[in-house]
């Protein structure tokens, strides 16, 4: 297995995205590496992706009952128009983001991680999360409303 420190940091950040807790993130990453070491052939190029998948599955298994890992469908109140720029115009303070982060649903954190840190498009995020693009955009819309409310009723954040 070939994983340099940069890759390990990326995987750790993804684990943190799932758990919103640094200790839990480290435990999750460590156990996923141990599992992958037993299953992966040496030199597998895509080992980071494999570990990421293991972490996601383990997280869902272990935390589903505790944190109710959400798989929501679009409701009747879906927004009329959705696009990829929904999150682009949000402005938020660092302190507010730190407070907000731990209260977000794991799936919302994944969306934000893939969008902001990994630089994925909404289509790519939808494929990663194995949901339709429409479902994702609807989710992002609700996330935007949540961010607006939590960030200070528009006074500190929403442009």
């Amino acid at each position: 297995m070939k994983l340099d420190r940069e890759n390990l940091q990326k995987l750790y950040r993804y684990a943190y995205t799932l758990t919103a807790n640094e200790d839990d993130a480290y435990d999750l990453l460590q156990s996923a590496i141990e599992i992958s070491l037993r299953k992966l052939a040496d030199g597998t190029e895509n080992s980071a992706a494999y570990i990421r998948m293991i972490m996601k599955n383990r997280y869902i298994d272990e935390y589903r009952h505790q944190q109710s890992f959400p798989h929501e469908n679009i409701g009747d109140n879906s927004p009329v128009s959705l696009d990829e720029s929904t999150l682009e115009d949000i402005v938020i303070a660092g302190h507010d983001l730190a407070l907000l982060w731990k209260t977000l649903a794991p799936l919302d954190r994944e969306v934000l991680f893939f969008w902001a840190v990994e630089g994925f498009s909404m289509q790519e995020i939808a494929e990663k999360l194995e949901i339709s693009r429409g479902t994702l955009l609807s989710r992002v819309h609700r996330l935007r409303r949540r961010l607006q409310a939590e960030a200070g009723a528009g006074q500190r954040g929403i442009a």
Partner: peptide, 19 residues
């Protein structure tokens, strides 16, 4: 200080790192 969400998220995640 308020910044665009994407920029703020990247700053936030830079603090999340393995020792």
């Amino acid at each position: 200080m308020s910044q665009p969400l994407k920029q703020q998220l990247n700053r936030y995640f830079k603090q999340v790192e393995l020792s």
